[in-house]
């Protein structure tokens, strides 16, 4: 099995996991699914580094396992345990069935977009997988109201870029490390903000026509 075949396999596992996240009502399941996806990504990077004798990829795989697969999910889970009312997605934007169908359509759309716009420049069909995953992550942000799930959507987009970066070997390690540090910072700060967001605000729809005087000003 070549590295490219494993890349495709890992990519499709990621897409399947994001689709699985879309039908989860419990936030903890979404976090666990993300953690599994990140472990798969880390294992792939470690294997690629081991086979290709590239210490840079091994270090990156280790970093992915520690930060993305373990630390961030643990941090988010601890936050959930503190505030039990955050455990469920109470009011999703769309129904579960339509969300899953749309999520899969986004994956297909990602492939089409890639084939039309980027394929001629990147010269690798593999790039379609991260692009599809990137769009699915964006859709997860749009389709959910719970801040924690939106954060996971952002992290899925970041994971997609990690996969994409793999197509351009030797992307400077200092940049990748900087990205990881920024992601940690973003998650920590978001953690504070998520905790500050009270339950009514969390579920409030600022585009809702419900007369909420204080929220009308946040409109466009």
């Amino acid at each position: 099995m070549t590295l490219n075949s494993i890349f495709v396999l890992v990519g499709f596992i990621q897409i399947a996991l994001v689709t699985f996240m879309q039908w989860q009502t419990y936030i903890s399941s979404v976090i666990k699914t993300f953690s599994i996806g990140s472990y798969v990504l880390a294992a792939f990077l470690l294997a690629a580094g081991y086979v290709g004798h590239e210490p840079y990829l091994i270090a990156l795989g280790g970093l992915t396992a520690v930060i993305r697969a373990w630390f961030i999910p643990s941090f988010l889970s601890r936050m959930l345990r503190r505030d039990r009312w955050r455990a469920r997605e109470i009011k999703p934007v769309l129904g579960i069935a339509s969300t899953i169908i749309l999520s899969l359509l986004f994956a297909v759309f990602g492939y089409v977009i890639y084939a039309w716009t980027m394929y001629d420049y990147v010269h690798s069909a593999l790039g379609a997988i991260p692009v599809a995953l990137f769009l699915q992550g964006a859709f997860l942000i749009i389709s959910r109201r719970t801040p924690t799930t939106q954060l996971i959507g952002y992290l899925v987009m970041e994971n997609a870029l990690y996969l994409f970066g793999f197509l351009f070997p030797e992307l400077p390690f200092v940049v990748e490390a900087g990205v990881v540090l920024d992601v940690i910072g973003t998650i920590m700060i978001s953690g504070v903000i998520v905790r500050l967001k009270e339950e009514p605000a969390q579920n409030a729809d600022v585009d809702d026509s419900t007369p909420r005087e204080d929220f009308t000003e946040l409109r466009g």
Binding site: I141, P147, I189, S190, I193, V194, A201, A204, L218
Partner: peptide, 11 residues
Amino acid sequence: LAVEATWRYII
């Protein structure tokens, strides 16, 4: 409102 605006900014 400030917290909501902060969240929008981050995401």
